[in-house]
Design a protein around this nucleic acid. Sequence first.
DNA 1: GCGGGGGGCGCC
DNA 2: AAAGGGCGCCCCCCGC
Length: 590
Amino acid sequence: MLVAVTIRNGGVRAVRMADVVADGAVGDVSADAPVAHAAAEAVGGAAAVTEVTGPAELAEWEQSYAPRWIFDLAAEMYPALLALGIRVRRCHDLALTERILLGREGRFGEPCRAAAILARAHGEPVPADPVPIDGGARPHVVEQPGLFDDAVAEATETDPRLLIAAYRDQMRRVDRSAGGPEATAAGIDVSAGALRLLIAAESGSALVAAEMSRRGLPWDADVHRQILADALGTRPTDGARPATLARLAEEISTAFGFPVNPDSPVDLREAFHRSGFDIETTRAWVLREIDHPAVAPLLRYKDLARLFTANGWNWLDDWVVDGRLAAQFLPGAVVSGRWATRGGGGLQLPTSMRRAAIAEPGHVLVVADAAQLEPRILAAVSKDPALTALSGDADLYAALAADGFGGDRRHAKLAMLGAMYGQTSGEAARLMATMRVRYPAAVACVESAARRGEAGGVVASVLGRACPPPSEGWRRAVGAGGASDESRARRVARDRGRFTRNFVIQASAADWAAAWMTTLRLALLDEVPAAEMVLFQHDELVIHVPEPYAEQVCELAVTAATTARDLVFPGSSVHTPVRPVAVRCYADAK
DNA sequence: GCGGGGGGCGCC
DNA sequence: AAAGGGCGCCCCCCGC
């Protein structure tokens, strides 16, 4: 069953299509192709349409039918249902799906809401999206979701039937986009089932993100203030540097013998030049190599200045609301399918600040982390038997070291990262030779992706998310014939090679993570509805759980990881282990 | 005065 | 010893 939902006058308007389809598999993350397809077709012929505007009925629909809710953009619509106290099991996010489908056609950044989808289907002029789906540039303050803004309400006042029509169009295009000579030639061929799974997982992620953005990570402002007080002293009044920073700035100038602004890289580099140190950048790792009295206070200054500007009192004022971190999570906002956040830097919480993330009374934080995910994903994507065999080890790098690097874990890790990120010089390049001998399939996989990228081609994740084609500027730079441009052309080409090399891994890891969290969310909804997912960062979930359920949630997180492996890499024996821990304070998880 | 690019650094 | 993928966010700095 399908239910399409839009907003009208700040209220919810929903259309339920006839109950023609036996329920069950339709919305599962493992949605099987024929069933989902049958649903779409049935909708086309369905005459019986029920329309409601009352929350009680919506809740009952969810309860009785567990339908797939069709949203123009879940990030806009689902909060309206949540506000009515309705959590849904599954949805289809038209905008996120459209971005995936357009991406497979090499079209990035085009409008992707229902109106645009239908216009394209009918060869009509495509209207611009009313608001950017990534939320656009947001002011550095907490604001209510734009849901009830007049502009948004007006723009989304669509007949819900149009959403169904857009959904049908997308499902047809899924079948066309899978397989076929074009996709094969482009190197982005996957099965229709894989694409459907990607869409289900992406849509499920949107539900996770909406719930997560609503109930963020518990954050103890007093603990945070104590951390700031210990490191920086008292909060300065308006615009001034904290006393500790001012003191360090003095020390730095004294060490140079002339005034230097430690916040200015230009100023700093010049100061070091004048002191006889010919450095290109003022990055910390460069400075650490220099024997000069300004270095120690400068490194200390950089450290504290970052704490002050990125996670200081202003951050606390802006992003911690009612004891929760109010970051907005945006699924699929990175081309690789990774999430982004708007505000609060929710994906970059410094480990030193995690002492302030403390479960509410009677609760714990279940921190579930997919350890060493990317090398395991490489094993699965490349089907490299030797690497897959090693993935059973809890410490993959240690196993790698024992297998071919004479027990040197540091070497093994360096080689693996070099393979995944494309390091071509220094020690890592030498270690790659070992990789090539021991794990030929894995190395061939990333190198073929790199060659494709260098040649201007595209690559895709295991479930079919395609990377962007090169820009016009890239083509010009690489195609330029002049001898003076040749080295630049080579460099630009290799930059793209590194991007596509890594894309295959990073995007496939994002596929896995989306399947994992979507599976886990469904399990929690059934078994521990009080559990709240409160943070997600690439391969790690934090779940706020009433203490008695801690053990159960840990087990569900582990099971969901295996399910995700089976869904995303059917038949693979690669291990993608998750080892959850239940802690009161986030800092205790590591 | 404002916006955008880049430097630098936090996370994965 | 030397520096590779993806971000967000702060600041500086420059050009309009």
